[in-house]
Nucleic acid binder design. Structure first.
Lengths: 334, 334
DNA sequence: TTGTACGCGTTATCAG
DNA sequence: CTGATAACGCGTACAA
């Protein structure tokens, strides 16, 4: 049905070896035969079969990506970067939505392994030992995005969460706020939970401001609903509060909604700074001041690393810089 | 390196044919040998090579998806549905970001063709004749999502844009509004542009309300910025306006922002209904009343159709139902 | 410069 | 019930 390299060879009156040569432009044929071959390819509408090619080369030109949630605003941006860089380097990407479920994740790793992907990117999820075992059995490069493993030597790309949280909090302090609160996501989360709380605390301590645990409202997730909930309980507990650091943009926007219901003006009564810089952040009223994570760049970098690794070179983990994006949700008290 | 079916056969003292049989549970072997084989597979940690399998079966278990933008909120939801259904049916999906660029799109079609995907899903983009030519050369099922082709017989899945716009507008009218406006996206867009404008007009006519073209503000895109811009010019042109239908949620949220700047209260002064029902819509202040497109279901349906088609059966296009989601951005004048 | 022939890992046909 | 063996489409030493 689809013409094969053999058909091309016949039509051009050469051997398949020669066709293969011009296809991969290797040396070893005259200009004249090259033209004949090219012509035959054109005439037949020949398209090389990447499957057959993959079988012999042991390279599929495909990398797999594991997301805990593909519909998350965040994943979409990381995926964008991954796809761009992969395409740039002539690879394609297979997306997998694990829903943070162990069975599903394991099944996907198995699947990607059978499909012989050249490497994979593991996003925003903790690497448990079962995962690691499955991953290392594949024998292909793996790089982590927006997460990291303390037990296993997997290279990662992320921002410095603690530092970023520090930056956010410091911004609030420099604007003259002294009564600060934080709405945190999951406090069990070793990556996005704890470090951000520590950064918050550190900034406060350094400024010589008083600190007590009740200033941090610990929610279970980083969602909009958590933000609504968290803002309410935080402000009833500490009515004097004048600024809050939200551990994610979604939380921040949830806080906006709660504030609106409570008749609290932002940034008039209380200032808010978020974390992530999703599209959302520029579309809110008021536009959200937030810490930008370079999601797209993170995706790109991860792919670069994977590809570099299976060129034989090792790859070092990297911490990408975060940036504070000033918009309209913080007011100055100076 | 990776154990092959041959290794398993050796270890179990059987032929590769037998191993293949138990692998694909075909009939023809005793329980005893089955156990031996299974044991060998277990011991070796054997994983079938999907590439080799694909070569002989002429089926890769992979489908390709073409998006004009992967980072769009909308694409993320469609992708979610696609991935879910594909995974459900044992397939994986390769994502491609065309950026609505012809060259890129063509290159991707070529790539997917070489990778011998079993079918593909084409999202939110017009099927030009070059595309169609490339597509049909592949000889695999193609289904359109959120778009449709008038020239070519490609099955699609979408909502009835005209009807949905009608529903939205009618909702405004039934709430007692008589001075309606619309912020439209690209008026050249045969799918998302024109039909929605027609639906808007139709609802107004049917209600016996006066209509003039200036009630529709035509923007170039469906973005947030278009919404900001559009709302301003629309309301300066028609200060008497009390309700507006936005051709997308992003436009609606942009309108919220503009309204805020202009000191116009929503829904106090003017009511707004959006279109899409993105995550965004529930997170805005006030929460946005909007037309829900079942994006996830659309993605699912599309892969169902693709898979069904390469089982030999044809697939009919389908119009999925839209639903009006009432939230807080519309006030009643009755 | 060009062609032959083997191998990549499976499935499927056919003979035992 | 089981085992050779021919495809599948391509890359590549090796020979010519």
């Amino acid at each position: 049905m689809n013409p094969t390299i053999q058909d091309v060879a016949n039509k051009a009156n050469v051997s398949i070896a020669t066709v293969s040569r011009v296809l991969n432009d290797l040396p070893g044929y005259s200009e004249k035969t090259k033209q004949k071959v090219l012509q035959a390819i054109e005439d037949l509408g020949y398209q090389p079969n990447a499957i057959a090619r993959g079988l012999v080369n042991r390279k599929t030109g495909t990398i797999g990506v594991l997301f805990p949630s593909v519909s998350g605003l965040l994943s979409a941006e990381v995926l964008h970067g991954i796809e761009a860089q992969a395409s740039e380097e002539g690879h394609s990407v297979i997306v997998c939505n694990t829903e943070a479920d162990e069975d599903k994740t394991l099944k996907y790793i198995q699947l990607l392994s059978e499909k012989r992907v050249d490497g994979l990117v593991f996003v925003s999820e903790e690497v448990t030992d079962v995962y690691y075992k499955a991953l290392s059995r594949m024998g292909v490069p793996v790089v982590l995005v927006s997460t990291q493993s303390f037990q296993y030597p997997l290279p990662y790309v992320k921002v410095d969460d603690r530092h970023a949280a520090y930056t956010a909090t410091r911004h609030l302090i420099q604007a003259g706020h002294t009564q600060l609160g934080m709405i945190s996501g999951n406090e069990k989360d070793l990556i996005a939970g704890i470090p951000r709380m520590e950064g918050f605390k550190q900034a406060i301590m350094e400024a010589g401001l008083p600190f007590q645990e009740s200033q941090i409202e610990k929610q279970l997730s980083f969602t909009y609903e958590a933000g609504q909930e968290g803002f309410k309980t935080l402000l009833t507990r500490h009515p004097e509060m004048t600024a809050v650091f939200a551990a994610s943009d979604e939380i921040a926007i949830g806080a906006f909604s709660a504030a609106y219901e409570m008749g609290i003006s932002i940034p008039g009564d209380v200032s808010v700074v978020g974390y992530d810089n999703l599209k959302l952040a520029e579309m809110s009223v008021p536009p959200l001041t937030t810490i930008a994570q370079p999601f797209q760049r993170m995706g790109e970098k991860a792919v670069e690393m994977v590809l570099q690794m299976n060129r034989g070179k090792g790859a070092e983990s990297c911490i990408l810089p975060h940036v504070l994006i000033e918009r309209k949700s913080v007011s100055s008290r100076n």
